[in-house]
């Protein structure tokens, strides 16, 4: 049952002398929610950037399903069905929410050069955009200019845009960062719903959220993979407790 959808083999990326990601071999099973944990500077975002093609690896390989995607540019990886959201809000601030999602959905159109028909007249694309808005909970903000919304809502839009491209595998870089308690709950509910028919890989600092949604955990420290396993296994791991989770007295 445990089909591997994405795996990395000895994946490394260095910036000068800094090993941001160091010899990481990891497998992600289809249909599960994987969370990558680790202190600041552990290389989590670099890992996501490698998986999404944002930056090429220094060495090692990445396979998506049966395809070697090592070194493919971000746009090609996106087209294969790997969507990502960004830690720092990365939207089109001067466009409406709908246009943000519509532009995301439009990327799935076959043939990129369509010059004459109005972009708004493609029903399927509009439907995808509406669906993305609906799922991220911004249907009521459809015609609002993105930069006029609260930070938390912009974070929601970030996810909605990713969903509008209908990815199979979602890479979420701290989806809850900077959200209020109420917005966080909404997004956690959304993640649970998405988990039913998607594979999720998420980076998150909010431990309650991680334990609420994740099936598998991977813990990184200083670019290296420290521990992987189910939530229970990782929680029980001595090494992880020492390195990251800390003892109970510290309040984690």
């Amino acid at each position: 049952m445990s089909e591997i959808i994405l795996k990395t083999q000895n994946l490394s990326r260095h910036f000068g002398a800094l090993m941001a990601v160091d010899d990481v071999t990891l497998s992600f099973e289809r249909g599960l929610v994987h969370a990558v944990l680790g202190p600041n500077g552990a290389g989590k975002t670099t890992l996501i950037n490698l998986l999404s093609g944002e930056i090429p690896p220094s060495s090692g390989s990445i396979h998506f399903k049966d395809q070697n995607i090592t070194g493919l540019p971000a746009n090609q990886i996106s087209q294969l069905g790997i969507g990502r959201s960004f830690q720092k809000t990365n939207i089109f601030p001067i466009f409406t929410c709908f246009e943000n999602c519509r532009l995301a959905a439009q990327s799935r159109m076959k043939g990129s050069f369509r010059f004459f028909r109005s972009a708004r007249s493609y029903k399927q694309i509009n439907a995808l955009a509406e669906k993305g808005l609906e799922m991220c909970g911004l249907a009521n903000r459809r015609d609002t200019i993105a930069q006029a919304m609260s930070y938390g809502e912009q974070r929601q839009l970030e996810i909605g845009m990713m969903l509008s491209t209908e990815p199979e595998l979602l890479l979420l870089d701290e989806p809850l960062a900077g959200m209020g308690a109420e917005e966080s709950l909404k997004v956690i509910e959304l993640l649970k719903r998405l988990a039913k028919d998607h594979t999720l890989i998420l980076i998150e600092h909010d431990m309650d959220a991680v334990f609420a949604v994740a099936d598998r955990l991977a813990v990184m420290v200083n670019g290296r993979l420290l521990e992987t396993g189910t939530v229970g296994e990782v929680r029980a791991s001595k090494a992880v407790q020492e390195a990251y989770l800390g003892s109970d007295e510290e309040g984690h």
Binding site: S52, E54, P73, A74, N75, Q76, S78, Q79, R84, F86, N90, I91, F92, P93, I94, F95, E99, R102, L103, A104, Q106, S107, R108, M109, S112, F113, R114, F115, F116, R117, S118, A119, R120, Y122, I125, M161, T165
Partner: peptide, 29 residues
């Protein structure tokens, strides 16, 4: 004016506003 309303026109305006995100969404910039 027609071009800028078309999918291509919308896409180039997206490139102007946020090129990196356009690439991440699958466009060949």
């Amino acid at each position: 004016a027609v071009l800028l309303r078309s999918p291509f026109g919308r896409a180039i305006q997206g490139v102007k506003v946020n090129e990196g995100r356009m690439r991440a969404m699958g466009y060949n910039i």
